[in-house]
Design a protein around this nucleic acid. Structure first.
Lengths: 279, 279
DNA sequence: CGAAGTTACTTTACGGCGTAAGGAGTCGCA
DNA sequence: TGCGACTCCTTACGCCGTAAAGTAACTTCG
C-alpha cells in the first residue's frame, strides 16, 4: 500500500531482534491463543545447541522439544538463519557491561576482565563461534557488548582510528582462545580414555607412516618437548582443571598480556605501530 | 589377519594425508583401470569450495564435476570429513616456508611476511576457516607451516613456553583478519549495489525501530563517526581495493603491529606478561 | 583359453534436513 | 451466526551423506 514496499525482510528480522524494545501490543485479535512464542523457541534452540552442539540443532528438534512440529515454528520465526540470529543475540545478554577499574585511569584491569568474561561466555556457548558473521547480526545485546569494549578501549586514550582497529584485533584473539578451551573441555568430557586412544592410534600411525618426522619438522618437535612442562603456581587455584584446558587458558593469558603490552607501547609512543603516518 | 586390527581408521586417514611420502606401488593387480584418483577428487573439491563456497560442496557436486557419481568417490576416500581433511592439507601446500630476514637477527620482518602470506592464503581459500579444528588434521603441509612459524618465533629468543603460546595467539589473529577481508571482498563482489541496498534497508529499519540508538550505544556511534576516515598514504599502492577491504587490511596491519610490539616488550624485559613466575 | 577373483563404478534406497503448500481447528468481532 | 484472522498440522519436494547390492572391466591362475 504505502511506501514501505520491498524492505519487509530487513524490517522483519530487525524487529524480531529488537522486539523487547518495540512496544508490544498486549495481544488482541482473532485466532487461537498462541501456545508458542519467539522467546520460548529461542530458549529451546539455545538449550539444544548448548547441550548437544550446533550439529544437533534442527527445526524438527526445536519443535519436538516444545511439543510441536517443526512447521509450527515458521509462524513465529521466518527461518532457521533468522532463528540463529536471535539465538546469537539472546545469549549475548549474559555479558555484563560494567567493569570496575582497580584504580583511576586503569584501563588494563577492566580490559582483562572483559576478555575473561567474554572467554567464559564463548566456552559456555561454543556454538556462538560457529554463527556466520558474514553479515553482522545487529542485535541489541551484541551492540551492548561492542559498546562496552569500545568504552574500555577509549580509556587508553588512543585515537578513535586505532581503537576501531583494536576492536578487530581483540575479538579474534578471545574467540581463538575460546575455541581452544572449548575443544579441550569437550575432549576431556569424551570418556577420558577414548580420546586418549584416539591420540594414541594417531601417534602410532604417524610415527609408522612418517619415520622421518623429527628431521622434517624439527622446530615443532622441539617445541613439543620443551614448551609443555610445569603448570604454573598461579594456576594452583585451577588445579581442578584438566591439563589441556589449563594450557589453553594460559595461552589466552599470555596472548592477551602481550597484546596489552603492545597497546601500552602504542600509548607511550602514541604509536610506532598504530599511527601510520611516517615522520 | 595380523595385529593391526582395530586401528584401521586412523591409519587410513593418515596414510591418505601423507600419501605422497609413502612409496606408491606403481599400480598392478586386477580390476578395471581407475579413472579417478584421490588427487583429482581433492582438486575438484577444492575448486568447488573456492568458486562456490563451502555450502556448495557436496559429494554429488564433486562427483558431477568429475563426470562420475557421488558414490564413486567412496572407492577412493572414506567419507566427506576425510575429504575435507585432505582438502585442508592440500591447499596448505601453497604456503612458503622461507622468509628472508632483511638484516641479521631481524625477527620482525619475517614474522610480518609470514602473517601476510597466511592472510592472503586464507583470503584465497576462505572455506579453510570453516574446517572444524576440534581434532587437528595432522597433515604434512599444515605441519610444515607450523614448523615455519615456530622457527620464525624462535628467532625472538623467547623461551619455548612463550613461543608455544604465541603460536596460539598469532593464528587466531590472522584468521580473524582473514575472515574480515574475505567478507569485505565477498560483499564487494555481490553486484555492488545490492549490498548497499541491503545495508540501506538495514540502517533505515534500525533507525526506525530503535530511535534512541545513539543514546544507548554512544561509544559505538562515536567510533563510527570518528574512526573511519581518510585512507592512509601508505595504502596508495592499494587504491584499487574497495574501501571495506582496505579498512580490513589496515586493521590487520595495526593489530599485528601491536602484537609484535608486545613481543618486543616481552623480549626486552624477558617478560612481565609472558613469564608468569613472579619474582 | 576360459573361469575365478578383484576392483571401479553405478543404481537404488534410507533416513535426515529446510521449508513450500494447503488444510484443520480456534477464536474475536461484525 | 458466520466471516476472517490466526495457530498449528499434514504432506510433500528436493537436497544431503552414505549403506547395500549390482555390473562391467581387468588380471591371474588352472
Amino acid at each position: 500500500m504505502v511506501v514501505f514496499a520491498g524492505q519487509g525482510d530487513a524490517r522483519r528480522s530487525l524487529s524480531l531482534l529488537w522486539r523487547a524494545e518495540v512496544a508490544a501490543p498486549p495481544r488482541v485479535g482473532p485466532g487461537p491463543r498462541p501456545r508458542l512464542s519467539v522467546d520460548a523457541i529461542v530458549a529451546a534452540a539455545v538449550a539444544i545447541a548448548d547441550e548437544e552442539g550446533m550439529a544437533a540443532l534442527s527445526m524438527r528438534a526445536v519443535g519436538e522439544r516444545l511439543g510441536r512440529t517443526a512447521m509450527a515454528l515458521y509462524t513465529h520465526v521466518p527461518g532457521k538463519s533468522e532463528l540463529l540470529d536471535l539465538m546469537y543475540d539472546a545469549v549475548h545478554a549474559e555479558l555484563p557491561s560494567v567493569y570496575p577499574e582497580s584504580e583511576p585511569d586503569d584501563w588494563r584491569a577492566p580490559l582483562t576482565a572483559w576478555a575473561g568474561e567474554v572467554l567464559e561466555f564463548y566456552v559456555r556457548h561454543p556454538w556462538v563461534l560457529q554463527v556466520s558473521q558474514a553479515r553482522p547480526v545487529l542485535g541489541p545485546h551484541e551492540y551492548a557488548n561492542l559498546d562496552t569494549l569500545v568504552r574500555l578501549l577509549g580509556a587508553t586514550g588512543l585515537p578513535a582510528r586505532t581503537v576501531r582497529r583494536l576492536v578487530g584485533t581483540l575479538f579474534p584473539l578471545v574467540q581463538g582462545s575460546a575455541r581452544t578451551v572449548a575443544d579441550a573441555r569437550r575432549a576431556a568430557r569424551a570418556t577420558g580414555s577414548s580420546d586418549e586412544e584416539w591420540w594414541a592410534a594417531r601417534a602410532a600411525a604417524l610415527t609408522e607412516l612418517v619415520p622421518d618426522f623429527a628431521e622434517r619438522f624439527p622446530a615443532v618437535v622441539r617445541l613439543e618437548r620443551e614448551g609443555a612442562p610445569d603448570p604454573y603456581p598461579e594456576d594452583a587455584e585451577r588445579e581442578d582443571l584438566p591439563y589441556p584446558e589449563r594450557e589453553a587458558r594460559e595461552t589466552f593469558r599470555v596472548g592477551l598480556g602481550v597484546l596489552l603490552d603492545g597497546i601500552d607501547a602504542a600509548r607511550a609512543g602514541q604509536g610506532p605501530a598504530t599511527d601510520t603516518g611516517r615522520p
